[in-house]
C-alpha cells in the first residue's frame, strides 16, 4: 500500500516537473488573454515573429528574419558601424555577423509588448577562437499596417 502511494506521489511529481518544463519553454513570453479576437491575433503574430527571428538566429539563416525587415532598420552589431540600414544592406550585414560569430545556441530570455511596439531580449552563444562566448541580442518590433516589422536589432 505504502509503495503504491509512493508511486502515485512520484508520478505526480514527475508530471508536475514535465508540465513546468513545458511552460518554461515559453518563459520569455507571458501569454495574456485579450478581450477581442483581433487583439489576440495581433499578439499571436507578434510572438510568431519573435519565434521566426529566433529560428533565424538559431540556424544562422537570414531568410527567416528578412520577411520582418522594414525599409530602414537600426542595426548595432558588434564590430559594425551602428546606424540605419536599408533592407538589402541589413540582410548582408546580418549574414556577415553570422559568418563572423558562428552560432552555438540562441534563446529568448524575456520580452515586453505594447500596442505599437514589442521587444525581446535573448542570449546568443557563438563559437570563436575555440571558446563559446555570449552576446545579448535585443530586437524591437514595430506594428505597421497590421504587420510586426523589425525596428531595431542591437547586439551587446
Amino acid at each position: 500500500m505504502k509503495i503504491g502511494l509512493n508511486y502515485i506521489i512520484l508520478s505526480f511529481l514527475l508530471l508536475v516537473c514535465i508540465q513546468t518544463d513545458l511552460i518554461s519553454q515559453d518563459s520569455w513570453w507571458k501569454d495574456k488573454k485579450y478581450k477581442s479576437e483581433e487583439k489576440q491575433t495581433k499578439f499571436n503574430n507578434c510572438k510568431l515573429a519573435f519565434m521566426n527571428i529566433a529560428d533565424g538566429l538559431m540556424y544562422s539563416n537570414v531568410t527567416y528574419i528578412s520577411p520582418y525587415f522594414q525599409n530602414e532598420i537600426y542595426l548595432n552589431l558588434q564590430n559594425n558601424e551602428k546606424g540605419y540600414y536599408n533592407r538589402e544592406q541589413s540582410v548582408y550585414i546580418i549574414e556577415s555577423f553570422f559568418a563572423n560569430y558562428p552560432v552555438s545556441s540562441f534563446k529568448w530570455k524575456n520580452s515586453s509588448r505594447s500596442e505599437k511596439y514589442a521587444f525581446a531580449m535573448g542570449k546568443y552563444k557563438y563559437k570563436k577562437g575555440g571558446f563559446i562566448s555570449t552576446y545579448t541580442i535585443s530586437v524591437s518590433l514595430k506594428y505597421v499596417n497590421d504587420l510586426w516589422l523589425i525596428d531595431q536589432i542591437i547586439v551587446n
Binding site: 558562428p102 552555438s104 563559437k127 570563436k128 577562437g129 575555440g130 571558446f131 563559446i132 562566448s133
Partner: peptide
C-alpha cells in the same frame, strides 16, 4: 571558461 572542442575545430 573551458575550451570548447567544436568551437576550436571550427577555428
Amino acid at each position: 571558461p573551458e575550451l570548447d572542442q567544436s568551437a576550436y575545430m571550427l577555428s
